[in-house]
């Protein structure tokens, strides 16, 4: 059994990652998901959240936004709408987005159609800030 996982991450715009890694933690639909080499085949949807992978002693953090994760034959394929590594996140912009979303949520009622949209915007902004804070 191989002792490494191959991590492939793609977005509609480009291939973000294609690396051999030791361990992956992903925000699965039903909960946080830890993946090690030798994992059984799995297909899951991902939530907005933070994906972490370990390579040697280094740990990397990536903010991901809605997608899929497939495990098969020691290969982990991640399909996401957006993926931002910690060092690519514009913290100021994320904070501005957070502020905007918070303000909008205060004025909206729960039934409003926009409420859901702003709530997910808020979530994304929070994840981004969280990931950016960790650097790597």
């Amino acid at each position: 059994m191989a002792d490494k996982l191959k991590l492939e991450m793609v977005t509609p715009y480009k291939r973000v990652l294609s690396e051999e890694v030791d361990e992956i933690t992903a925000p699965g639909f039903v909960g946080e998901l830890g993946l090690l080499p030798g994992h059984t085949p799995l297909l899951t949807t991902l939530k907005v959240g933070e994906l972490t992978y370990k390579k040697g002693s280094e740990t990397y953090h990536i903010a991901v936004n809605w997608g899929y994760l497939e495990v098969e034959n020691e290969t982990v394929t991640v399909l996401v709408d957006t993926a931002e590594p910690a060092d690519e996140i514009d913290l100021a912009r994320a904070q501005a987005a957070l502020g905007r979303a918070e303000d909008a949520l205060k004025t909206l009622s729960h039934e409003d159609k926009k409420y859901m949209i702003m709530e997910s915007a808020l979530q994304r902004a929070m994840i981004r800030i969280q990931v950016a804070g960790k650097g790597h």
Binding site: F29, V30, L33, T40, L42, T44, T45, Y68
Partner: peptide
């Protein structure tokens, strides 16, 4: 051909895919 694990379940995954 090991059976896949689907999370949350197969139909849900298919429905979003």
């Amino acid at each position: 051909s090991v059976d896949y694990i689907y999370e949350p379940n197969r139909n849900e995954v298919l429905g979003q895919l």
